[in-house]
Amino acid sequence: MTVVAIVITTLLAGGAVLALVRIVRGPSILDRIVATDVLLAVIVMSIATEAAFSRDATALPVLAVLSILGFTGAVSVARFAIRRQAPADPPSGRDADRPSSDYQAESIDLPDSLGLPAALDRRPPEPPDRGDSLSPPDRLDRPTEEVR
């Protein structure tokens, strides 16, 4: 049983260290998100393994919290990465380089997909000229209908 514990600990630690290397070296923020998800899965597996070996269920609620927290972090950082990296025409374009109207037009698909109420949606009534939304255009008409 001790041998099995050592083997499992070695395997989990190897996976965690390699995920950490990808977090440090990752060329983009999305690589780091993926590696962070793997690291979080390894942490959850470590806590479950510890609970299994010691037959102690104290740490099990931590697993439920971690599984939800990792999802929230990954989705929010992915939305942030869309906003930062969407203008690919200048490859190293920052938000400060662009006029503020473009910035407004780019951030419009944030509240709708996050399930916020339409009253918080301050998008302009005309569709964005950049055309960077994957959603159908009739979605833009819905908030004004609900306001009336």
Partner: peptide, 23 residues
């Protein structure tokens, strides 16, 4: 825990993949 992770992992992967393709 299993239900949480299996319900949320596809959503997170979809968001990351979409962001990756659009970026």
């Amino acid at each position: 825990v299993a239900v949480f992770s299996m319900a949320t992992a596809p959503v997170a992967a979809h968001m990351i993949g979409r962001a990756a393709y659009r970026a």
